[in-house]
């Protein structure tokens, strides 16, 4: 940000490499739901975009946990202590007590527009990015866990022990709280989250990720055409994750 010439040079380089990148992105089986070009690295995110996810429970296969494994792999979660291990996304099995109808679906941070975890955080470590992604700034998280008390979706995990071999793009550490980031490191490169990629790779296509503010995006078109709902919609949190079929 100090020298303009540097920035200009890098913009040009970026444009040159963007075509290459696009080619490479498709090659390994990555499906790009958005065709919009990635934002330049030096540009701040804006509220013009609201990232969201639509999960079609009819397409979510029983017994499949590809999204969960992909998340664990992407962020190096897990560890072997089930009560204290972090889980950013989990498969939930539901059964209607009256009718017996049952279904399965992934549950993750709902990236609310009005997130209770952000309201209660004393230091502001829990925050919502301009583009709707709810994150924890672990640099200022003191580990009080009040956000975990406040989250209606039980989406957050506290790190109960020392971690090793974290992924460079996904720093995580003992004594702080974390949750699904919508794979923000991928989103900032205009890629889809690991779980969505994995679901598509399995051929289920039950998860759609995209910009809910862009009427031409796949997610917006689907949301506009078919009915969908929010979990605990009664709380009025305007979640960024929507479900079909519940």
């Amino acid at each position: 940000m100090t020298e303009n010439s540097n920035t200009d040079k890098s913009r040009r380089q970026f444009l040159g490499s963007a075509a290459v990148a696009a080619g490479m992105a498709v090659a390994p089986g990555v499906i790009l739901h958005q065709t919009a070009s990635a934002k330049p690295a030096d540009e701040a995110i804006s509220s013009k975009v609201r990232w969201g996810m639509l999960i079609d429970t009819a397409k979510c296969a029983n017994g499949c946990d590809a999204c969960v494994s992909a998340c664990d792999e992407e962020h190096n979660l897990g560890g072997g202590r089930s009560e204290t291990d972090a889980q950013w996304i989990r498969k939930v099995e539901l059964r209607d007590k009256q009718t017996g109808h049952s279904l399965t679906m992934p549950l993750l941070c709902q990236h609310c527009e009005f997130p209770p975890c952000v309201d209660v955080c004393p230091t502001g470590a829990s925050f919502r990015r301009e583009d709707g992604i709810v994150l924890v700034d672990k640099h200022i998280c003191i580990g009080c866990r009040y956000c975990m008390m406040a989250c209606p979706y039980k989406a957050r995990s506290f790190i109960h022990e020392d971690l090793h071999d974290q992924k460079p793009y996904s720093p995580r550490g003992k004594g702080t709280v974390e949750s699904c980031t919508f794979c923000v490191h991928r989103v900032d490169r205009d890629e889809t989250p690991a779980c969505v990629e994995a679901c598509d790779a399995e051929g289920h296509n039950a998860m759609i990720f995209g910009d809910m503010n862009n009427p031409d995006s796949e997610i917006s078109r689907q949301l506009a055409s078919y009915s969908s709902s929010q979990i605990r919609g009664d709380l009025g949190l305007n979640t960024g994750v929507r479900y079909r079929g519940i």
Binding site: N6, A21, P171
Partner: peptide, 23 residues
């Protein structure tokens, strides 16, 4: 305690990200 103390070189996405990150 949180950040990786080793390079990302061996990671798959790296080739892609290098193409897309300008500076």
């Amino acid at each position: 305690q949180c950040h990786s103390d080793r390079p990302a070189e061996n990671l798959q996405f790296e080739t892609l990200s290098r193409g897309m990150m300008p500076d």
